[in-house]
Amino acid sequence: MIRFENVTKVYARGARPALDRVSLDVERGEFVFLVGASGSGKSTFLRLVLREERASAGRVFVAGKELGTLSSWKVPQLRRHIGAVFQDFRLLPNKTVFENVAFALQVIGKPRHHILTTVPDTLEMVGLAGKEKRRPHELSGGEQQRVAIARAFVNRPNILLCDEPTGNLDPTTSLGIMRLLDRINRTGTTVVMATHDDEIVDQMRKRVIELSTGALVRDQSRGVYGSDR
């Protein structure tokens, strides 16, 4: 589903590369943790998959397409198959829960009847049934992240990218979010999650990819957070 071939990303000329000759494969339906210290290149990895950045060298394949040669007008089409969730939720404060999720479908031109059936289903799946009319500031952090996940998942993407989705949440709430991501993974969606949360990684026992100053230092199936444990 995602394939990196010797990918290097350098932001500023002469600076240390954010990613340094990284090669890896993520299969369809996998759940992958991306770990490493701040600045190790996790976010760059995700940005490359979303084609928010282009690789400086090497090739990135997502869903069978090489992103380096993908023309920019095809990028939106690519992103419709990728959901993204962030630490800071990125909800629209003046829209209700329902509108926030529906927004993702409206802007890609889905018909109204499709939105009216899909959005409630997705909200129920993430556990927000009955809170459709709330606004983000009336929700807890965990609930806001569920809205964000619903928005990312409502178009049934093949890949779900999560950039520290539990970074702002307490352990109990984080666990709830992880259960949700796991459920989404079980529907066949490939999940790539960058995280600092060792407890979660250790508990889930999924594939772990560790980056250190841009280099791939560990790729372990059913791994834990720290390599020394």
């Binding site: 007008w73 939106p76 992103r79 419709r80 198959h81 990125r90 629209l92 802007v107 890609i108 928005r151």
Partner: peptide
């Protein structure tokens, strides 16, 4: 900016944005 950021993220076309 927030709206357009999300629109880009979920794959709205450039024309639409």
């Amino acid at each position: 900016k927030r709206e357009t950021g999300i629109m880009r993220l979920v794959g709205a076309s450039t024309v639409f944005i």
